[in-house]
């Protein structure tokens, strides 16, 4: 039997895959957050960053496919394991249940699935930029938002897109709910990842748990700050000006 088969066939093997793919996805979550937080800077900052990414299609698509595969393995292993887990405990207790379990641990599948649904939406919203899903009043095609960088390159105005996107109340709400679930998911996942890989003992156990708490909270605060900032007015003037002069250039804004 080759290694992959051995890994997939055993429950522990699938846990390793969950942990390793989880680690990779956490890496993405952090990277993506760092990228997005640039929205708090000058609009050019995030626009040039987005342009830089798009200018390397090999890298971008490589990363995208890699992420897709990672998600597929993570979700596939999760579904296989949870089906086996359900089968292992077909009857619930009537006198109460799940004594002693941490509450976050009990919602991993639910939180994971909602996050995945959100990710699909998020991709359609900001990556594919499917107009009907963005909910902007009066309709807006994000593709139409363009701007020029300082060097004169014509690029998509990602900054404007983000502001427009999060100004829609329900979109921000969905985003915040998904972030809250991610907080729950990571709070457990980040520590049990070490557990699954066997990187834990009585000394490191509590430290790992603390790390997971802090990291999941930091991720939540980081992501949540964007829609909250937009809803409380950030970038409002910028996009208002855009509406008045749809072909505004960077120069005119200055």
């Amino acid at each position: 039997m080759n290694l992959l088969q051995r890994v997939w066939r055993s429950s522990l093997g699938k846990k390793y895959l969950m942990a390793l793919t989880g680690l990779a996805l956490f890496g993405f979550v952090v990277g993506h957050l760092v990228g997005n937080l640039q929205v708090f800077g000058n609009p050019e900052l995030i626009n040039s960053y987005a342009h830089f990414l798009k200018s390397k299609p090999g890298l971008l698509w490589g990363a995208r496919l890699g992420l897709l595969a990672t998600v597929a393995v993570h979700v596939g292993a999760a579904l296989a394991l949870s089906a086996a887990n359900k089968a292992a405990r077909p009857v619930a207790y009537s006198g109460g249940s799940a004594y002693g379990s941490s509450w976050r641990s009990r919602y991993m599948l639910v939180s994971g699935l909602v996050i995945m649904a959100f990710v699909v939406y998020h991709l359609l919203h900001y990556t594919v930029q499917l107009s009907p899903v963005n909910g902007v009043k009066g309709g807006l095609d994000f593709h139409s938002l363009t701007t020029r960088l300082a060097d004169g390159t014509q690029v998509q105005d990602v900054y404007a897109m983000m502001i427009h996107g999060f100004q829609v109340g329900w979109v921000s709400l969905f985003y915040l709910i998904a972030q809250a679930l991610l907080f729950i998911h990571l709070g457990h996942g980040l520590s049990s990842m070490f557990h699954s890989l066997g990187l834990r003992n009585h000394v490191w156990g509590p430290r790992i748990v603390a790390f997971a708490q802090v990291a999941s909270l930091a991720v939540f605060l980081g992501y949540a700050s964007i829609p909250v900032a937009v809803l409380t007015g950030m970038g409002g003037d910028y996009v208002k000006n855009l509406k008045k002069a749809p072909t505004t250039t960077i120069e005119t804004l200055r």
Binding site: S11, L12, K14, K15, L81, A84, N85, K86, A87, A88, R89, A98, Y99, G100, S101, S102, S105, R106, M108, H188, S191, S192, H195, S196
Partner: peptide, 12 residues
């Protein structure tokens, strides 16, 4: 089933 590190086992 597999371990999802809920901690119930240790607790009981």
């Amino acid at each position: 089933g597999a371990c999802t590190v809920t901690g119930s086992c240790e607790a009981v």
